[in-house]
């Protein structure tokens, strides 16, 4: 069942799907289709040229070019060898980097951050498949858990991998991202989905490893509303999900300081990532998923136009 919800700060009348509803759909493809279909229409375009029906331009034949791509008609008219180039939307690589550390396995509402991340990744994968992009997936905590190399045929593998994901151990960004960076082949669209529990300096250091080779980077920062507000009720202490460390706290006295720290953290990340040409999208997991996607796709479209 779809629930209408007016989201703040977006197009009036835009309809989004509540995360609660998504939890009831056990088929990730169906979920992704439900989220993506209906409002996606030509927003996403690949910046790469490739095989397509839409003709882009002719260029001179260079040794090594595929002989099949020579425009023989033009050769007959001009007696020169040209190859046809088409505007393609099928040959981009999409790398989904999913943080599956223990801290992601937290949610005060219907979904945990990890589940939300799954939905988001599935939706992005589906979106890319419509564009015939190659889709790959890497899950990691403090090490790489699973890698699916990008391929146009790996959509179902990615969905299966997402489906059986479980939270792992403690989180670390530097080493896993360094390894991923080594394995990134051609220029790719790299999407990092995480709760980003690390200092902005270290995070930026880790993420910047992916920045070279002309990769486009998008960072989705997922947080539960409770992580934003610290409304834990009358608890004497809290236990770290990852380390198991117990910390006595007085939530009512801690709350303001905590919220300020979180705000500062987000602002600092946005500022630093933005400065490095990395898209930063913050997502409150109580907010509809399509809302996030809409923002993401709007941003991508804007960037493509300016490119």
């Amino acid at each position: 069942m779809l629930r209408n919800k007016q989201s703040q700060g977006h197009l009036p009348g835009q309809r989004f799907i509540d995360p609660d509803v998504l939890t009831r759909i056990d088929n990730l493809e169906l979920l992704a289709r439900g989220v993506v279909d209906g409002f996606i229409s030509g927003l996403h375009r690949s910046p790469m040229l490739g095989m397509s029906v839409d003709f882009a331009e002719h260029r001179s034949y260079m040794p090594g070019d595929d002989v099949r791509r020579i425009d023989w008609r033009l050769f007959a008219r001009t007696d020169r060898l040209y190859v046809k180039e088409f505007e393609a939307d099928t040959n981009a690589n999409l790398h989904l980097l999913l943080d599956v550390s223990r801290s992601m396995d937290f949610g005060s509402g219907a979904v945990t951050k990890l589940e939300y991340a799954k939905f988001l990744a599935a939706s992005l994968a589906y979106l890319s498949r419509r564009q015939r992009d190659r889709i790959g997936l890497v899950t990691f905590d403090n090490k790489i858990i699973e890698t699916i190399p990008p391929s146009i045929r790996h959509f179902n593998m990615v969905l299966h991998a997402l489906d059986r994901l479980t939270a792992g151990g403690a989180s670390s960004y530097r080493d896993p991202l360094a390894k991923i960076a080594l394995n990134l082949g051609r220029r790719s669209l790299v999407v990092l989905i995480s709760d980003l529990y690390d200092t902005p300096e270290r995070l930026l250091g880790a993420i910047n490893q992916l920045r070279h080779r002309g990769n486009d980077l998008i960072v989705f920062h997922l947080l539960d509303p409770l992580e934003l507000s610290l409304e834990l009720g009358d608890v004497a202490s809290v236990e770290d999900l990852e380390s198991g460390v117990n910390l006595p706290i007085a939530t009512d006295q801690y709350r303001d300081s905590y919220q300020q720290l979180i705000r500062d953290h987000r602002a600092e990340l946005e500022r630093r990532l933005g400065a490095n040409q990395i898209d930063y999208i913050f997502a409150d997991i109580s907010q509809p998923l399509d809302n996030i996607l809409f923002r993401y796709l709007s941003d991508r479209e804007r960037q493509n136009r300016t490119r």
Partner: peptide
């Protein structure tokens, strides 16, 4: 029972001074 409340990360909480506990 109260002590059992789990939280994703104590990263920010640990930065807050403990005097009010």
């Amino acid at each position: 029972h109260n002590e059992g409340k789990r939280f994703p990360s104590l990263m920010f909480l640990q930065q807050i001074p403990q005097r009010e506990k």
